[in-house]
Design a protein around this nucleic acid. Structure first.
Length: 638
RNA sequence: GCCGGAAUAGCUCAGUCGGUAGAGCAACUGAUUCGUAAUCAGUAGGUCGGAGGUUCGAUUCCUCUUUCCGGCACCA
């Protein structure tokens, strides 16, 4: 039976019988056959040695193809598992997927893998690559596969196979002595993996992501087309680590944390200026968008938190204080119940809605030790938190306005692109299913009418409602939720919020919980990392340092600083007896955006020589003009 | 919280196979008054994260503990 295949260039190849991608490649050129890693058959990735059906559209995947990395990483995981089982036969394998930049494999083994073990594993992987073992697909009977793995003591693997969907083929891939359940496809042999991989770290990870289950050892690796690509990646990573906000914050003298107050910042003068700049900026934005700022008690009786439902879900993570009369007060982990109390004062009419209440006071959450991470995850922090009390009909327009505001703010900080996640009902939640149906539908409607692109994040909503998460990335690619919008029909019910509708009836308002920046601390951390400390002029704690060349011009420099301060610009005066090169270096290292250099010449002409951070050029300007210009440039956008 | 790693001067790090520590930068003092990423010299700075144990002797070995780093879990 003859078979025809179409190639990407439109050409057709004919064979006497069904041919594999390898045979097709062979027909085209020896070189292509040698380079073939896999094949895209009618758009589906398939192994190269599998005979393809007549009429298939065939695209040979070589190393340069965009899909090659995925294959290489997937194979790296298998080769690693093979190496581990050779070196540590008491190890059980579980799963080993590819991830961004690499792969991991979760192993079960009593003894921990040491850094030396990782080196040994990596070496053995290189050996397996040299062995050039064929990687072949086999389809097994499910029960037989389960029995096979149970016999080998591979309980986790057997469990995975047992729980595969009934209609799914059980395919195993064999390379040398190693055999693993896998959907594929794979490279034709281990040598194709090449030498662009490296094991990075070991970490604990729970079986099936559940903390009640056994903890496995996850070995992370990175894999690339070749050594050169690997080295480029490692270099990038090294550079990214230098942008760590904890490191930069120390260099910039922003804040510190110490043992006596784990998870909370001691903000230094410069850091606090920065922090205030952010707060004042977003405060003005909120005024612009029709919010009222309020302030609610730092601690409130436990009873209120029980009523709201927070105690049930988060009681363990709340800090509490006992009063002399034996009342238990919770230090607020969030503002929503407080805002409802304000809403509940007096009778509200539908004419009053929407009511938008915002607050910036500090929140306290007893975050798990292992979760703490500099500014990104702290135990005390503030949010640009606000609650919009509105009618159901207002959910849609309020969402639209919020998204507009968020886009505007993110753009002001240079975040043009960000990810949006749609998180729907979690397992543990308050409110009826009907309420959730309504809330999710309302949010989905809003998202759809705005044409927002979001990814579904199943089961990750708040306990009182579904949410949108606006996600930004840190220097080394970790995702952090910053902005959020949550639709809540539950808390108004639990806390008895109501308004009088047009027909005179009492109605529950909908509550939109929303934050643009989210935690101000976290947002600052992200901003510091994304800008490598080169903050926008209007955010910088010290926008300018005035540096003298000789002490003869100290008075003139002091006058310049006085003029700046008169405009509210926190300028720094540097009259130290140091060479100008020294001063420039130091202010550059602490990321001062502008350095004004003044020497005899400038003093005589009443000018300043302006140097911008990251540039070697200088610009001369008259003193008054320079002050005016900087006053403009340090004004936050509105 | 869990798994692994780490903790030495303000910072970055070296060191001691058990005999109580060193560099560079920063700081301080003095000299130098200088034109855009490090002027020179000198001085000072550490109960080697904390507690306990082994030992004649512990920064080093052991146990516990705290904190930090990386993941995982959690994230109102």
């Amino acid at each position: 039976m003859s078979a025809q295949y179409r190639l990407p260039d439109g050409a057709t190849l004919e064979f006497d019988q069904p041919a594999s991608a390898l045979e097709i490649a062979e027909r085209i050129s020896k070189k292509l056959a040698k380079q073939a890693l896999a094949v895209k058959a009618d758009g589906r990735l398939t192994d190269v040695y599998v005979p393809l059906t007549d009429g298939t559209e065939v695209e040979i995947i070589t190393r340069d193809h965009e899909d090659a990395l995925e294959l290489i990483r997937h194979d790296a995981a298998h080769v690693m598992a093979e190496a581990v089982q050779e070196l540590f036969p008491d190890t059980q394998v579980t799963i080993g997927p590819t991830i961004e930049n690499g792969f991991y494999y979760d192993f079960h083994r009593e003894a921990p893998f040491t850094p030396e073990d990782l080196q040994a594993i990596e070496k053995r992987m290189q050996e397996i690559v040299r062995r050039n073992e064929d990687i072949r697909r086999e389809v097994w009977d499910r029960d037989e596969a389960v029995r096979f793995f149970l016999d080998k003591g591979e309980d986790f693997k057997a469990e995975i196979i047992r729980e595969l969907p009934a209609d799914q083929e059980v395919s195993l891939y064999r390379q040398g002595e190693f055999i693993d359940l896998c959907r594929g496809p794979h490279l034709p042999s281990t040598s194709k993996l090449g030498d662009g991989f490296k094991l990075m770290k070991v970490a604990g990870a729970y079986w099936r992501g559940n903390a009640d289950n056994a903890q496995l050892q996850r070995v992370y690796g990175t894999a690339w087309r070749d050594k050169k690509e690997l080295n480029v990646y490692l270099k990038q990573l090294e550079e990214a680590e230098k942008r760590d906000h904890r490191k930069l914050a120390r260099e910039m003298d922003l804040f510190h944390i110490q043992q006596e107050a784990v998870g909370s910042m001691f903000w230094h003068p410069k850091g606090w200026r920065l922090r205030k700049n952010l707060e004042n900026y977003i405060r003005d934005k909120m005024v612009k968008y029709g919010y009222e700022e309020v302030s609610t008690p730092q601690m409130m009786d436990r009873i209120l938190w029980e009523k709201s439902g927070h105690w049930d879900k988060y009681g363990d993570d709340m800090f509490t204080v006992c009063t002399h009369d034996h009342r238990e007060m919770a230090i607020k982990p969030m503002n929503c119940p407080g805002h409802v109390q304000i809403f509940n004062q007096g009778i509200k009419s539908y004419r009053d809605l929407p009511i938008r209440l915002g607050e910036f006071t500090a929140l306290f959450r007893n975050e798990a030790h292992g979760a703490l991470h500099g500014l990104m995850r702290a135990r005390s922090f503030s949010q640009d938190d606000a609650h919009i009390f509105c009618t159901e009909a207002q959910v849609n327009p309020e969402t639209a306005t919020f998204i507009q505001m968020l886009r505007e703010v993110y753009a002001d900080f240079g975040f043009q692109e960000f990810r949006i996640k749609f998180s729907d009902r979690p397992e543990k939640r308050a409110g009826s299913d009907e309420t959730w149906d309504k809330a999710e539908a309302a949010l989905r409607d809003a998202v759809e009418s705005l044409g927002l692109e979001c990814e579904l994040n199943p089961g990750e909503g708040a306990f009182y409602g579904p949410k949108l998460e606006f996600v930004l990335r840190d220097a080394i690619g970790r995702d952090w939720q910053c902005g959020t919008l949550q639709v809540d029909f539950v808390l108004p019910e639990r806390l008895d919020a109501e308004y009088v509708a047009e027909d005179g009836s009492r109605q529950r308002p909908v509550m939109l919980h929303r934050a643009v920046l989210g935690s101000l601390e976290r947002f600052l951390g992200i901003l510091i990392e994304s800008t490598a400390g080169h903050l926008p002029l209007w955010m910088a704690p010290t926008p300018v340092a005035v540096c003298t060349i000789t002490n003869a011009v100290d008075d003139y420099a002091a006058e310049a600083v006085a003029l700046l301060k008169a405009k509210g610009i926190p300028a720094e005066l540097d009259t130290r007896n140091e060479k100008i090169g020294f001063k420039v270096r130091e202010h550059s290292r602490t990321k001062t955006p502008r350095i004004w250099v003044v020497g005899e010449k400038e003093a005589e002409e009443r000018k300043v020589a302006i140097r911008s951070l990251g540039s070697k050029d200088t610009e001369e300007l008259g003193l008054e003009e320079a002050v005016e210009q900087l006053a403009q440039a340090t004004r936050a956008p509105i």
